[in-house]
Design a protein around this nucleic acid. Structure first.
Lengths: 255, 255
DNA sequence: CATAGTCATTGGTTAGACCATTAATATGAT
DNA sequence: ATCATATTAATGGTCTAACCAATGACTATG
């Protein structure tokens, strides 16, 4: 039955020397032989170590830099520093996939429904008093903005974003927190451009937020999750409707 | 209130020429001026177009290649081809973050609980007859393997993976489907190494799968989601327990 | 003591050459 | 005529050697 095993190997990309250099340095980082903050020797020295030309070495450094593994500084005391593993790289790639349509926005929206629900549930289970206080403070601010009507609209959107991200933080799961941020920055913020005051239904949204925070405060995890999910679901439905209208208008114009 | 706006600009990375070349080509791809399959002119020609040295141009190409935007072939008729936007890049980055511990495995496990639940629910809503048939076929195979006891264990694991991925496909959401694959390949497969026959509780797992498929078939979305979530939750709990034991044993050894 | 200038270090860029791989084409044996 | 083999042109991969540009430390000068 071993013929069922899926190899999933990577194509052994030619004998490219710079790739070998990349692999060696990357491996050193993964094995902890190089840790964040470490500075690699100057290019002219590394060139000798690896016994490659400077050009080849630099191609390797470009790849490592693009992978987010090292950061390169200019001038005296400059050079390639091993970076703290971060999420910028992932974020950039995701952003590109969204912009280019590789990930359909409807799918992302739907994904967000489930994610926000789960996050709210977890937050309800894990919030401490300090968390609740911060949350209520932001909420108060948001609703004040909402009450100002159209003039407070932009600020409400900003406060709304803060609340969602704060809840993600309270859920204390780095994966959810990261995805939440990236989705918000690439989808919600994009959608908000097309929103106008009437779309936003400030009072309704504000009430949703209030209910959600209450549920979290009172540790009603299921409720919190359900409210959050419904909240996002309604938003998505409204955006889809708007999108359909836009598409319709465009196809009408192009006739 | 415009002082509240979060800029989130990127550091204007110095006057690096190759970066400018990267930006221009990337922009051309995003704008559709370059579409997948297009072949860029040879390096020696591009060098003149951008008025840079070949070395600089090649550094730009390395970055574009690393970003997954182009693929470079050798020999006559070779060159840089614009690639179909894919997920390999994202996958590689994620795999690195998991391997390096940037994303804690417990967080990923917890994330998976929610995700698998949601996927099962969606699958229940969207499965057609063909989907169900495929699913039942894989299920039957999996359970036969399970009944063989220890000898069928490895095959059961493989069939189990197939079922989960098939359900993700049925859910018809590219984001969930992608995340499911990446998590499975990087976490589940990793965990499986440490599993032994007794851990796997073949009969219990098989029953879970049966219940899940039934729920999907009968469009009981809530049930399907709950069963899937519980299934993963139990698995995670078992792995955490095992991990704690291992850690304990290690610290005992190192004393 | 402070300010401005000098200089060594290190990444960024250029130029030109040659090597290695690939696919098309020409050549030759059967 | 057909198929195998050798040639060749196109193109990426690598090397060498030089010079430019930014940076920070050191030094001289007021």
């Amino acid at each position: 039955m071993s013929d069922k095993v899926k190899p999933e190997f990577q194509k052994a990309k030619k004998n490219r020397i710079f790739q070998d250099v990349v692999d060696q340095i990357q491996e050193a980082i993964l094995e902890g032989k190089l840790t964040p903050g470490d500075v690699l020797p100057p290019e002219r020295e590394l060139r000798e170590t690896f016994n490659v030309s400077r050009g080849t070495l630099r191609e390797a450094l470009r790849v490592l830099e693009q992978k987010g593994l090292v950061e390169i500084r200019l001038g005296t005391g400059g050079g390639a520093r091993v970076k703290e593993a971060g999420t910028e790289q992932l974020t950039e790639t995701l952003a590109f996939m969204i912009r280019s349509g590789t990930l359909p926005v409807v799918d992302i929206g739907e994904f967000r429904e489930g994610m926000e629900g789960k996050i709210a549930s977890l937050a309800a289970l894990r919030a401490n008093e300090k968390d609740i206080k911060r949350l209520e403070k932001i909420l108060k601010n948001a609703c004040e903005m909402a009450e100002k009507g159209e003039s407070g609209w932009q600020d409400f959107l900003y406060a709304d974003e803060s609340i969602h991200k704060e809840i993600a933080k309270i859920a204390r799961n780095s994966v959810y927190q990261y995805l939440m941020n990236v989705v918000h920055d690439n989808i919600q913020r994009y959608y908000n451009i097309f929103l106008d005051f009437s779309d936003n239904r400030l009072a309704e949204n504000c009430q949703d937020l209030k209910n959600m925070v209450s549920a979290i405060k009172e540790r009603r995890a299921e409720d919190a999750g359900r409210i959050a999910e419904e909240h996002v679901k309604r938003f998505n439905a409204r955006m889809r409707a708007k999108e359909a209208l836009t598409t319709q208008a465009i196809s009408k114009n192009s006739q």
